[in-house]
Design a protein around this nucleic acid. Structure first.
Length: 557
RNA sequence: GGGUCGAUAGCUCAGUCGGUUAGAGCAGCGGAUUUUUAAUCCGUUGGUCCUGGGUUCGAGUCCCAGUCGACCCA
């Protein structure tokens, strides 16, 4: 009654048993690694023996002989392929640094050749032998000894197709990383991207800090939180949605440049761009403005990209980076566009052959009312006329634009909604650098949608704020910080009132934060960026799940 | 929340108009093979066709409901 899977596992258990019967441990951990060599070291030493063209990885037998002589090398790793030839056998061994072929010959190994019998693909082994080159030019280790270290009781997926079922890939991620090397390369890249961020910020004299993730108040962003409870204090707590307010308290405390890279939690839906827990970089710089930070942001993104390229190459993973860059639809090497939101809306309207000034004046009249009916009886006619102006005008989501306008209570909110529907969907086509899209800073956001940003001196209806869009996707949010405690207290009160009116995503009144501002926070600018999204962007991954080691999934049924 | 598509062997996939005992490749098992590269050749094991109803002489296939997933929209 065994299923096919049970039979495959049983066959491997039987092999483990046969080893135990011979007094060997199929889960040994006594390998002596003093003389262990990583595959990458062997490849590096053998590089001088590479034949042209080098990317084909064919080696000269004489040169390899010259470099390595008959010295025995010692490697450990997982077997990922096996080709039996009777009295000879080819195995492929993978360690964290790379792969190399093992060549087993009965006349060389003698009795040790029988060690191959109980060994399967996926097992971890240690091997000793001399470097040589096969007749096809493949660098190989001619085995003297082979020993099982760990028996894998389950088989690997199809050697050619790997594991493609997306659900299985994410549920059995440990298999995904073995079967799909690019998935593992993305995780390596993520680690390097985080290192690159630290490398850049540390060199700019920022201090890395860790602030609480358990919060008593909701603040720093507009999002629904997860709730939890501290037993000893009998205290309700929120998992943080952003570190912002604590980092700015540190500016009050005298730290001029601080940053934090850490997990944030938002109790929202899951999509290709959203995971309930995600990693955010925030940094704050005293005596700086959002203008300073735009320049810094461009340098930061380019620095991280170069850092990634160099370090991946150092790991022998250059081909993955090359593939990602090849597929990139955006350019990072040219100055990013900087466009005030109002101008972005105006020029987007013009590009759709719409009367920009008239349209902006009519936003309130275009809104749907409570029951989805137009507030203004002329509005349907205007929209019909607008749609006829151009293909682009026709492709605008007028229905949802008017619905969203219906929820707006101020001109600033309406401008923001107009931007979201008229301009943002077209950023990729409107801002170009040759055949690539150009990253765009949208600047000067309305004050109503920016509760923590500083008012513009020249126009108090706007804030000194930018968001960076790379190929149409939001990557960063930054602004000159509000440090007037009275202004901040008034904005908190507005949030509390919005909550009382039924708004779901609001901030709480944070009296301690207002007190901190009363002690004097230096003028400053702050910056936030999703590390997951940055990784998606630089590695060309379509889903946030591809850049998270273990994304949240519905539990197995 | 709405729409579209999908779920068949451990993995990757076929399965025609509803019709005999559901197939292939890989993996596994047995055999041959001392330079292979997805090795090759011979033989062979392995199935809750996602679940539950329904239509029918007969359902992997058609219908309904549900579960799970992917993509798009909100």
């Amino acid at each position: 009654m065994d299923s096919g899977e049970d039979a495959l596992i049983q066959a491997r258990r039987d092999k483990a048993e046969s080893l135990r019967a011979r007094g060997e441990n199929p889960f040994a951990n006594d390998a002596r690694l003093e003389d262990r060599t990583r595959v990458s070291e062997l490849r590096a030493r053998a590089e001088a023996a590479l034949l042209e063209p080098k990317h084909e990885l064919r080696y000269s037998p004489e040169w390899v002989q010259q470099i390595f002589g008959s010295d025995t090398v010692h490697v450990v790793g997982r077997l990922v392929a096996r080709r039996g030839m009777g009295k000879a056998s080819f195995l492929r061994l993978r360690d964290a640094s790379g792969e190399i072929q093992l060549f087993a010959k009965q006349d060389v190994m003698g009795a040790a050749f029988s060690a191959l019998e109980p060994i399967d693909i996926a097992d971890h082994v240690e091997a000793r032998g001399a470097l040589m080159v096969t007749k096809t030019g493949e660098l190989s280790i001619e085995l003297r000894e082979l020993r099982l270290l760990t028996k894998a009781l389950r088989p690997l997926p199809d050697k050619w197709h790997g594991l493609t079922d997306t659900d299985l890939r994410y549920r059995h991620r440990y298999v995904d990383f073995v079967a799909n090397p690019e998935a593992a390369a993305v995780l390596r890249a993520r680690s390097l991207i985080v290192s690159g961020l630290r490398d850049f910020l540390d060199s700019e004299e920022f201090v890395e800090v860790e602030t609480p993730t358990l919060h008593t108040l909701i603040g720093g962003a507009l999002a629904r939180p997860f709730t939890t409870h501290h037993n000893a204090l009998d205290l309700s707590l929120f998992l943080r949605i952003a570190p912002e307010l604590y980092l700015k308290r540190l500016l009050v405390g005298g730290f001029e440049r601080v940053y934090e890279i850490g997990r944030c939690y938002r109790n929202e839906g899951i999509s290709t761009r959203h995971n309930p827990e995600f990693t955010m970089l925030e940094f704050y710089q005293a005596y700086a403005t959002y203008d300073t930070l735009m320049t810094l942001t461009e340098r930061l993104v380019r620095h991280v990209d170069r850092f990634l390229e160099q370090r991946l190459a150092g790991l022998g993973l250059a081909q993955y980076y090359a593939g990602w860059v090849e597929a990139r639809p955006f350019a990072l090497d040219q100055p990013f566009a900087r466009v005030p939101m109002a101008r972005a809306v105006q020029s987007a309207a013009e590009r759709a052959a719409l009367p920009a000034a008239e349209l902006l004046e009519r936003l309130e009249a275009l809104a749907f009312g409570e029951k989805g009916a137009p507030r203004n009886h002329e509005a349907d006619g205007w929209v019909g006329e607008y749609k006829a102006r151009s293909e682009r005008a026709k492709s605008i989501d007028w229905t949802n634009l008017r619905r969203a306008l219906g929820h707006c209570a101020s001109p600033g909110e309406r401008l923001f909604v107009a931007y979201e529907y008229l301009a943002e969907p077209f950023l990729v086509e409107d801002y170009r650098a040759g055949d690539k899209s150009l990253p765009v800073f949208i600047i000067d956001y309305p004050i109503e949608v920016s509760p923590l940003a500083r008012k513009k001196d020249a126009d108090p209806s706007l804030t000194d704020r930018f968001e960076l869009f790379v190929h149409g996707r939001e990557l960063c949010n930054a602004f000159s910080e509000l440090n007037d405690p009275d202004d901040q207290a008034a904005r908190f009160r507005a949030q509390v009132e919005a909550k009382a009116r039924g708004a779901e995503e609001t901030m709480d009144y944070d009296a301690d934060y207002v007190r901190a501002l009363e002690h004097g926070m230096p003028p400053a600018a702050g910056f936030g960026m999703g590390v997951d999204r940055l990784t998606m962007m630089l590695t060309g991954q379509p889903s946030i799940r591809d850049v998270i080691a273990f994304p949240l999934l519905r539990p197995e049924g």
